[in-house]
Design a protein around this nucleic acid. Structure first.
Lengths: 102, 102
DNA sequence: TCTAAATATCGCATTATTTCGATATGGTCA
DNA sequence: TGACCATATCGAAATAATGCGATATTTAGA
């Protein structure tokens, strides 16, 4: 758990919004029609839809998602041409605990 | 509650360490001998001692403490020539809750 | 009122982050 | 294979954060 990297991710409001959208993809994104049945309902969202909603360029959102993955705030899975990201709830919970105890 | 400002504070490891020292000043700082009896045990620590331990210049630590106060992560009280800072536990708790729910 | 101590503020150089456009990579399907 | 789509990576310019030294402010005490 690299708390330094985690807090650096959170220091950017667009990244925080992405995290919060991924908390409940159903209300923030259309259905992931290319995602196989077995992966539905796990909170995965593809990069393109996140980019659209975030209002930044494709390269920027890709960079953000990578930072969030390095910090283990997100996990990802590549399926076909798409990369799907979802929250890593364990890291978020540990981060909350860290702040409460810190 | 300006979460953006709070996360920006936390994005710096020296500031995070200051916050954690102030969680338990007794084990990290000598007694505050100039602090009146009525304020003892409330977790107040003066700027000079925080500076020494943080290993940055006086102007830098003053700047940091001000950022943390603006973000309501710290409160302060001026007594004589000294400014004493202590944690604002309410903000820290709300921040932890925010991350857990976000 | 002068001096000294503690802290705050200012100005600035350095370094890091942000964010883009361009390009590369990897996967799909005709 | 070749064209195309989604995503990743690269390189660079703009902006923001870091952190210092110098200086100002505030308070205490002689």
């Amino acid at each position: 758990m690299n708390m330094d990297a985690i807090f650096k991710v959170l220091a950017n409001p667009v990244r925080v919004r992405i995290l919060s959208w991924l908390k409940d993809p159903g209300t923030h994104f259309p259905p992931m029609i290319h995602l196989p049945e077995a992966e539905q309902g796990k909170g995965y969202v593809c990069v393109g839809l996140i980019q659209e909603k975030a209002g930044v360029t494709q390269s920027t959102v890709s960079h953000y998602l990578n930072l969030m993955k390095q910090a283990e705030l997100l996990s990802c899975k590549r399926i076909g041409q798409w990369t799907y990201y979802c929250r890593n709830e364990a890291t978020l919970q540990k981060t909350a605990d860290y702040i409460a105890r810190m």
